[in-house]
Simulated assay, not measured.
Amino acid sequence: MFDVLAITAPIFLLIGIGYTARWRELISPVQLSGIGTFVLYFSLPALVIKALTQNPLEDVLSGSFLVAYGLGSIGTFALGLLVARRLQRKPLTEGALQALGMAASNSGFIGYPVGALVLGPTVAAKFLALCMLIENLVIIPLALILAEAGQQQGVRLGPLVRHTLQRLARNPIMIGLATGLTVAISGISLPVPLERVIEMLASASAPAALFVIGGTLYGLQLKGMVRDIASIASGKLLLHPLLVSGIFLLLTWFVPDIDTMLLAGALLFASCPMISVYPLLGARFGMEGIGSAALMASTLLSFLTLSTVIWVVSHHL
C-alpha cells in the first residue's frame, strides 16, 4: 500500500498545489490559462515528438497496443452513446459529448506522469504517443462530428466531417504527432540544440500539467449534475479500463507472446480521468458546466482507481 501511495501521492500533491494556488489567489485564472497554453502548445507536443524520435519508430509503434486500446476506446464510446441515447434519452450532441468523456483519457496531464513513475519516463512516453494517436485521430473527431451533426440537422455529412478535421489539423498535439512521425520515418537526426530544447520542454509537461489540473478544479460546482457526472465518471474510470484490458487479454489467445508491459501501459492510461480539454470541447455546445464538474469528480475519484491499478500492475504484471 505504501508503495502505491509513494507513486500516487506526488501526482495528487501537485494537483493540490495547483488547487491551493488558486484558492489562496496566488495565481489568477488568466495566469493559469497561460500555463495551460504553454503545456498544450509547447510542452506536450515536444513530449510527443521526443517519444516518436528518441527510439526507432518500430520500437514505438505497437499494433497490439493500437488494436486493443483503440477497440476498447471505441467500444467505450459506443456503449456510452447507447446509454445516453436509449436509457437517458439525451440528444445526440449531449450523448456524443458524454461518450467522449468516457472514452478519451487525460494521457498527457495524468497518464504520462503516472506512467513515468510506474513504468519509467521512456516507456511512458511511448504509450503517450500511442494513446494520443487513438484519441486525436479517432475518438475526438468521432465525438465532434456527431455533436455537430446533432446541432446541424440537414447539413450534409461530407462538409461537416471536412470542417471538423480541418479544425483538428490545427491542434498542437496533432502537429506534434505529424512532426514526430515525419522525423522518425525520414530518419533525419535533429540538431543537438533543437533536441535539447525539445527535451527541456518535454520535461516540464508533467509538473506544469498537474498544476493546471489542480487550479482548474478550484471553484467547480457539482450541484444538480450528480446523475450525469456518475454516468460519465463510472464509464471513464471503470468501463474504459475494463474494456481495454479485456480486449488485450482476448488478443493473447491469438498472439500469445504479447508483452505484458503493453497491457500495463494500456490499463494505466485507460484508468485516468478524461482529457483536460473536455470542458472546453463541451463549451462549444453549451455543456461546459457538466464537462467541468465531470472532470473534477473523475479526477478526484481517480486517486482510488489509479491506486488500485498501480497495485495490480506492480504485483501481477
Rank of each mutant, 00 (worst) to 15 (best):
T179F: 10
G180Y: 12
L181W: 12
L181A: 09
L181M: 10
L181E: 05
T182H: 05
T182S: 12
T182A: 14
T182Y: 09
T182L: 11
V183K: 11
V183C: 07
A184T: 08
A184H: 04
A184G: 07
A184Y: 11
A184F: 14
A184S: 12
I185C: 14
I185R: 15
I185W: 15
I185L: 15
I185Y: 15
S186C: 09
S186N: 08
S186M: 10
S186F: 12
S186Y: 11
S186H: 08
G187W: 14
G187V: 07
G187C: 13
G187I: 09
I188P: 09
I188W: 15
I188F: 15
S189C: 08
S189Y: 09
S189A: 14
S189M: 08
S189R: 13
S189E: 14
S189L: 13
L190D: 06
L190V: 02
L190W: 09
P191G: 10
V192R: 09
P193G: 06
P193S: 13
L194S: 11
L194Y: 13
L194G: 11
E195A: 08
E195Y: 06
R196G: 10
R196M: 12
V197E: 03
V197C: 11
V197P: 07
I198H: 03
I198D: 02
I198K: 03
I198C: 07
I198V: 15
E199K: 01
E199Q: 07
E199P: 00
E199F: 08
E199L: 08
M200N: 07
M200I: 13
M200L: 15
L201I: 01
L201C: 07
L201E: 03
A202Q: 02
S203T: 13
S203V: 06
S203C: 12
S203L: 13
S205Y: 04
S205I: 02
S205V: 06
S205G: 10
S205T: 04
A206G: 08
A206E: 06
A206I: 03
P207S: 07
P207M: 05
A209V: 10
A209Q: 05
L210S: 06
L210N: 01
L210Q: 00
L210H: 01
L210R: 01
F211G: 00
F211E: 02
F211L: 03
F211A: 00
F211Y: 01
V212L: 03
V212A: 01
I213D: 02
I213F: 00
I213P: 00
